[in-house]
Write a protein that binds this DNA or RNA. Structure first.
Length: 578
RNA sequence: CGGGGCGUAGCGCAGUCUGGUAGCGCGACUGGUUUGGGACCAGUAGGUCGCGAGUUCGAAUCUCGCUGCCCCGACCA
């Protein structure tokens, strides 16, 4: 490919709106262009990378027995009504009507569609287990797309679905997917990609893992130690609670102490010796009274899960007062617990002699002990709803947890019968009985993976592509390209490499060195060769790797093609699936 | 959906407060001089100033409405 013919200009300046490295470089390098909020066109350079990524994904999916299919992007709404998701999924699902006024939608994931295939094609236990996958466009009407290709509304996704006769079979396949994903992200050149425990959210199911590419611009917060990694939504820690002999309750006047900080400062005790009361309103408008140790924060994802309540909002003062609690001075003492849902974090339930509110303006109470002081504990749910903090002890090893940011590039779920049961996706078992198929599902965001690779592999000048997914493997720059000797040497090298199956980009424009090099950096091919009258005078060329920075070395022109071919092949081999 | 910011040439911006002929840099095109980390000279093309009303002799600039885009939050497979 000649650079003079490549569609997609390099830009000297970053787009005003770009804030992350992948967004800046993918736009500046001419990989993609924004069309509208969360909608991008992919230009030839970007498409080359994406095809390579898809190729690796295909290899790994095929290797674990996947069969590639293609389902429609546009789906009839009544199919989604069968699973119940037509109602439960909100505005993220784009709905519209066709010419016959039939309600349609743009697929954001394809469990329903694949179940429709499965229930007609998979009828016997003899056909199971099996797995099918597709690499296809998804549309999600995101509330807030951001960071270039990291979060978009329309994107390419690999989604795979497996079908089983037993939980054991599902778990066995799940493990194979897990291993395939680990191979895929390694082969894509991700430096650090962790599989972490996650909340299964909208898709449903019990066990799920997210694959997180570690990057500062990541939207997810995760906690890791040597033997533990979890999303903040589900992460736990092994905090120490102060346990001592319960002392008698003692009212203490605390004027103007409405926050934990004010209270702790006024009484001269650490925030960890206080208890915080937080009030929410659940989906039915009922008050939710949460107690947690004063120095900790409520994790709303955990709370929603504990209450099995997808919608929580902060309660207003009137609702709080309705049980006899006083905002700013609230506690479990002297309130009507029968009229609200109560959740107590173990940090509050198991600590001794905490300072709590007196439910009386300007007063608190010392020496609260949950086990002793809450008489009607039957309606109280004691469960972990605390947000883990960096440095908190790991629940497995006890060492301090490290906090990292991650980009979710893939996820895997054990669905069970969440879809097959309501959609009547059954098979005939050996015993002649009809049973629901047990399912798993497995996704990878292709464009997001490309962006994540750039986040992890770039310098100040542009992407540093791993050989496995580079848009071009070798970049030839001809300086003083108007001189026939340079032109001929470049063309000869280009042709030799192409004949050997190497992807070569040939900068034939005759631009000045600085200009050509800046473009080469933005394109990011792993290997670069510069040929100029100077190097030709000594029968040499300049060779450099993209990850060498400014360093380069001179090499004899004779044999450079063989050297490049073997370099490319050796490096590709390190990204092989074996 | 809440808070903030921005829409002027392909890209990045000034001009708006204080109304008076549409500007700069980069990029593109032509010619010439150059050629190892984003060269130089001369010339050329390119803009309904986001859209619509209003005020005014006159609106990129003032007023009202709409709309698009970005950031933070909510939400999120």
């Amino acid at each position: 490919m000649k650079l003079s013919q490549l569609i997609g200009q390099r830009l000297k300046e970053a787009p005003r709106d770009a804030t992350t490295a992948s967004h800046i470089f993918l736009v500046r390098g001419g990989y993609c262009r924004q069309v509208s909020t969360g909608l991008f066109s992919i230009l030839p350079l970007g498409e080359r990378v994406i095809r390579r990524i898809e190729g690796i994904i295909r290899e790994e999916m095929d290797r674990i027995g996947g069969q590639e299919i293609k389902m429609p992007v546009v789906l009839p709404a009544d199919l989604w009504a069968e699973s119940g998701r037509l109602e439960t999924v909100g505005a993220e699902l784009l709905r519209f009507r066709d010419r016959n006024d039939k309600l349609m939608l743009l697929g954001m994931t394809h469990e329903e569609a694949v179940v429709q295939i499965a229930r007609t094609e998979l009828t016997s236990y003899k056909q199971l287990p099996c797995m099918m996958y597709q690499i296809q466009t998804k549309y999600r009407d995101e509330a807030r797309p951001r960071a270039g290709l990291i979060r978009v509304r329309e994107f390419t996704m690999k989604d795979a679905y497996s079908f089983h006769t037993s939980q054991a079979s599902l778990e066995e396949h799940y493990q194979r997917e897990y291993e395939a994903y680990t191979r895929i992200f390694r082969r894509l050149g991700m430096r650090r990609c962790l599989a972490i425990l996650s909340d299964s959210g909208m898709i449903g199911g019990k066990v799920s893992h997210e694959f997180m590419a570690i990057a500062d611009c990541g939207e997810d917060t995760i906690f890791v130690s040597s033997k533990y990694q979890a999303n903040r939504e589900v992460a736990t820690s092994r905090l120490e609670y102060v346990r001592e002999e319960p002392l008698p309750l003692e009212e203490v006047e605390t004027p103007d102490c409405r926050t934990i900080d004010e209270l702790a400062a006024f009484l001269g005790v650490p925030a960890s010796r206080t208890c915080k009361a937080v009030f929410y309103k659940d989906g039915e408008g009922k008050l939710v009274f949460v107690n947690i140790r004063g120095d900790l924060e409520v994790n709303e994802a955990k709370l929603k899960k504990a209450l099995r309540c997808p919608e929580l909002s902060f309660a207003d003062d009137e609702l709080i007062a309705s049980i006899g609690a006083v905002p700013g001075f609230a506690s479990l003492l002297n309130v009507d617990l029968s009229r609200c849902r109560v959740v107590v974090d173990p940090s509050a339930a198991e600590s001794s002699n905490l300072v709590v509110g007196a439910n009386r303006v300007g007063w608190h109470v010392r020496n609260f002990n949950y086990g002793r002081d809450v008489r009607d504990a039957s309606s109280v749910l004691v469960t972990d709803i605390a947000t883990v903090r960096e440095g908190d002890p790991c629940p497995v090893t006890g060492e301090p947890l490290q906090m990292l940011k991650g980009i979710e590039v893939g996820n895997i779920f054990q669905l069970g019968v969440k879809y097959s049961e309501p959609m009547k996706c059954t098979y005939l078992d050996a015993d002649g009985k009809s049973k629901p198929i047990i399912m798993g599902c497995y996704g990878i965001g292709v464009g997001r993976a490309m962006a994540a690779v750039v986040e992890q592999n770039h310098d100040d000048y542009g992407p540093i592509w791993p050989m496995s997914i580079a848009p071009f493997q070798v970049h030839i720059v001809g300086l003083n390209h108007n001189q026939p000797a340079v032109r001929e040497a470049c063309a000869k090298l280009h042709d030799e490499l192409v004949a050997q199956g190497i992807d070569v980009l040939y900068d034939d424009r005759g631009e000045k060195a600085g200009f050509a090099f800046a473009d080469a950096d933005l394109i990011g091919a792993p290997l670069r060769v510069v040929i100029s009258p100077k190097t030709l005078a000594e029968s040499q060329c300049e060779f450099k790797r993209r990850d060498w920075g400014k360093r380069s070395e001179m090499r004899p022109l004779a044999g450079i093609a063989d050297f490049l071919v073997s370099s490319v092949r050796e490096e590709l081999a390190t990204y092989s699936g074996d």
